[in-house]
């Protein structure tokens, strides 16, 4: 990946990255009720990191987010799998979800849903996969 030198791009992306990440977070949590969900949020987050990598370079991204993205993929897959398996313990078919409405402080009446955990797995897997791909190719150049 070429060494970033565009100050303008760098400065803007510093701000924009957080806006995108926040938007991704929003999409993730509202996914069950309005457009959004794990896939979109995951891709969006990866896109934000990609922007960072384009504006600066791969090393910067590595420094800022020192995760092994392969591991994140694995964790995501594991979470998704565990959510599915959890249902088996309640005598339900694989991947059957449960949900309920709870009165939480500050948030008021909130819906808590195991599908959200599953979606978290999807989110992590997508972020992990996308970043693994991008970083792998980027570093090879």
């Amino acid at each position: 990946m070429p060494k970033g030198s565009d100050i303008f791009l760098q400065n803007i992306s510093k701000v924009v990255v957080f806006i995108i990440l926040a938007f991704a977070l929003y999409l993730f949590f509202t996914g069950h009720g309005s457009p959004g969900g794990g896939f979109i949020a995951g891709l969006m987050s990866a896109g934000a990191l990609l922007l960072l990598a384009l504006a600066f370079d791969i090393d910067t991204v590595r420094k800022v987010i020192p995760f092994d993205f392969k591991l994140i993929t694995a964790i995501g897959l594991l979470i998704a799998l565990c959510t599915g398996t959890g249902a088996l313990f309640f005598g339900e078919p694989f991947l059957k979800h449960a949900f309920g409405y709870f009165q939480l402080p500050l948030l008021g009446k909130t819906e808590l849903h195991t599908a959200l955990i599953f979606d978290l797995g999807v989110y992590l897997a997508v972020v992990g996969v996308t970043m693994t791909i991008l970083l792998t190719i980027g570093e090879d150049n």
């Binding site: 009720g33 457009p35 896939f39 897959l77 998704a80 979800h97 599908a115 997508v126």
Partner: peptide
């Protein structure tokens, strides 16, 4: 299924197994 976004509900709930395999 307790969701209002039908597409998302299909993805993570009704057809969750597909999604699971997809991320695999």
């Amino acid at each position: 299924a307790g969701g209002k976004n039908i597409v998302n509900v299909i993805l993570v709930d009704f057809r969750g197994f597909d999604t699971m395999l997809e991320i695999m």
